[in-house]
Amino acid sequence: MPFDESHVDDETLALLALGESAGSDAERAHVAGCARCTQELDALRGVVGLARDAGPDSLTPPPPAVWERVVAELGLTAAGTPAPMAAAPVAVAPVEPSPVVRLDDRRRPSGGAPTARRPWAWVAGAAAAGVVLGGLGVWGVLRGTGAPTVTASATLEPLPGWQASGTAVVETSGDGSRVLVVDLDDGGGDTDGFREVWLLTPDVSGLISLGTLEGNEGRFDLPVGLDLDEFSVVDVSAEQFDGDPAHSGDSIVRGPLGA
């Protein structure tokens, strides 16, 4: 299994959560020093623990339609083997910041291609290891606990004039509610005004403000019905106390969300 230079892949994290001796020494060292991978590993361990502690009488078998959705989410064929997958990263071109930004004249955002994270990839490994009892399925366990899962993530890269970097993840709870979690390093704190978090379209023809980022980490509730395929770019801007609600055009970091 190839090693992602940015983060450890989901299959390795799943095996580690199950207590297996998985991955190379470099991958295990990366997990130990990476806040994002450690957070995902802890979340997987929590779900594994809940599944192992639950007895057969405490779980309700899901209807057949649930398994069909799991098969579709994992990209499995009818025989149960993974179907070929082709991940197409979102390309984002460089921009030149401007003092006045309008929805119709923004330029294309910059940033690195997203690291593909497949939050359902670990399900197959967990099922194979016997975490799921009988034919009950992982979907019922996740929905029953209400534990949030990471369904999208972005690597936030600095724009010209800034040295900051960070990450953004979308956490989806069992009830379908979603939260965008933004985490920046200290390089994003040098501004005389305040920082605002936005979701942009890839061509920067539309944008949605999610609120002010206080400190280096913030959680922002995503409106029900918001299409993250359309508004798929996370942006953190430096804003001034000038009473203008529009984007300043001075973006600190930016990056596209990837599933």
Rank of each mutant, 00 (worst) to 15 (best):
V131K: 01
R107K: 09
A121L: 08
V132N: 03
A124S: 07
S98N: 10
P109T: 05
G130M: 15
E96K: 05
G135D: 12
A127H: 08
R106P: 10
L133Q: 11
G112Y: 12
A129Q: 07
G135H: 08
A128P: 04
V131P: 01
P119G: 11
L136N: 07
P114M: 13
G130C: 13
D104V: 03
G111V: 12
D105T: 11
P109H: 01
A127I: 09
G112M: 14
A113L: 12
R117E: 02
G134N: 12
G134Y: 11
A113K: 13
G111E: 15
W122H: 06
P97V: 02
V123A: 07
A124C: 04
R102V: 09
P109Y: 01
G137K: 06
L133A: 11
V131T: 14
S110N: 15
R106V: 01
P97Y: 00
G125F: 02
L103H: 02
A113T: 12
P119Y: 15
A127D: 09
A113E: 15
A116S: 04
W122D: 04
P114V: 15
G125T: 06
V100T: 10
G135F: 05
A113Y: 12
G112C: 11
G130Y: 14
L136M: 09
A124M: 08
D105F: 00
W120V: 04
V100Y: 00
S110Y: 14
A121G: 07
V123C: 05
A121W: 02
V131E: 14
P119E: 13
G111F: 10
P114N: 11
D104K: 03
